[in-house]
Write a protein that binds this DNA or RNA. Sequence first.
DNA 1: TCTGCCCTAAACACTA
DNA 2: ATAGTGTTTAGGGCAG
Length: 659
Amino acid sequence: MMVESASETIRTTPSNQNGVSSLSSQSDGGGGREGGSNGDANGEISPVDLLHLQQQQALQAARQFLLQQASGLNSPGSNEVKQSPVQVPVSMAMMSPQMITPQQMQQILSPPQLQALLQQQQALMLQQGLGSKQLAFQQQLIQMQQLQQQHILNLQRQGLVPLQPTAAMQSLQQAMCPSDLQQLWKEVSGVPSTEEALKQAEGLDLSTNSSNSTSAFPKAASAHIPLHSLPNGQSHTPKRDSHEEHAGSHPLYGHGECKWPGCEALCEDMGQFIKHLNNEHALDDRSTAQCRVQMQVVQQLEIQLAKESERLQAMMTHLHMRPSEPKPFNQPLNLASSGSLLKRDSEAYPEGLPHPPTSAATPITPLRQGPSVISSSSLHTHSHSHTHGVGPIRRRNSDKYCTPIASELAQNCEFYKNADVRPPFTYASLIRHAILESPDRQLTLNEIYNWFTRKFAYFRRNTATWKNAVRHNLSLHKCFVRVENVKGAVWTVDEVEYQKRRPPKMTGCAFHPLLSLSLSLSPSLSLCMCRSPTLVKNMISGLGFGSLNASYQAALAESSLSLLNSPPLVTPPSAASLNMLHVGHDDVSSTVEQVNSNGSCSPTLSPQQYSHPVHVKEEPTEVEEDGRPVSLLAGVTHSLPLPSDERDLEEDLPTEELE
DNA sequence: TCTGCCCTAAACACTA
DNA sequence: ATAGTGTTTAGGGCAG
């Protein structure tokens, strides 16, 4: 009650509510600490006008671009999808370009698209002698990108777009998850005009627009399957899963409803379904268009699978595995429907991973090999931009169980630095990260503040809020220990306490369905992944989720080791405790220690170095290449000489026991 | 529903 | 007096 009354009377943080959707560069009332490139009031036109003008121009260009896209779709006989600088998702093609608002534009266009668009516009402006306004334009560009990135992030957190903001569309096209497909289908199905549907199907470019080998989407694939045969006979529907195989005698019928993409009509029995099928999904333009989309989806997946299979072969070859293990690939794709996959519990963290390598060729209930899914819940957006409205995302999707912060930050450092996006980590994890990143593994409060503002654009505003939260967290969590120092108080991390906060199961780590697919395809890979976060990452990337939200990549990667890797025991802060970090570790550790102690190195150590001073090498992208394939190949972790760090990691597993 | 975690907000005390 | 720091309480949301 006290709080309520207080909040009614006094509002010390006046503008917490300002979301991120404002294009005007919000000069955060608070703080304005370092790194604030400010001031750009110049010239004859006011910055606001200028921004407005530029925005209008950008939008105009975007509209023209869309018109081009749309007209490109109209060309009936074209075998090639028009290769525009940027590709437009099908949903975009559905919109009347003239009706697109700036917000829609930002939401529709992926960052690359947006950037390309704006760059075009920028070039145009330069040609028109508007170069003097470049600065403002750049700012607008950045802001629009940020907005778009945020949107993408939101999508990611909703589980809709398992992507990294930087290559959102590309990966979307590469790796449309079932929900994407469903959405896509709904969009296609919802088209009023069948011709529109055809256009969309035609224009749907599931291929990447990059140099990816799948860039030229094989439209010829359409010819492989007679369109008219699909409604009743097609068996490529990715929605089809084993359940449906058993549930109904028709691949498009299951669980009492029509499985035609985007339909979901309820049918009591098969007869009704057949009737429905014939009535609603007869051979017409719309169905044809849908089929084409579906074919492209399947084709894309197949291409992707082929690529990944090839990659896997190469990896195995490289790792001296017998490459003659394509067997799993020939198995039916356990590419279950989104529903079944998404519901699959991730209880099967590879505890049974010490299966001998022979299991590599043995399909051991593949889908249970790993945590399976990115469930929409686990990717949940947390976007309760509710009362406080401070930020779109919150917390622990990836932090709590997987602590991928190091990897995440390492990968998206620049992104967070520039984009006004709230990092998907808890304050506690961020604080810990900041502290561990420091040379002495201790920071003053102010230094923590600075780290936040330095690393995250998001924390350059709402300073009162998050600073309070930082202090709150420092005080609240036992894992943060305050130490009186010569120069005042510093904060350190009690890693033991911190680890206590983390449940020993990685149930929170979400896996993308296609990752499950890969796991199912290759038990040996899942075995490897359990040993190597890098491999996990690479694999995810290779799956076309190279731009899978780094959080989840990192989660995948780190979670696979998190159970094995109990980070070093940083006993409460003292110089001695720092030394304890490296007890029993190899020279690499001592190297790091030296580097740390003299503080001469870059203040930013490699994430692994600080977050896991035991040196789980994660970044060296060539997985354990340096003569350590053993641990990858040998599932029998205990029977083989593990690198000291890994051994430590395993032995440290029961953290609590060490107390 | 319960519980734990996380977040924001705020009050308060202490210190430089 | 003020700002910074640190502690504590309260309440709400989310997820297991």
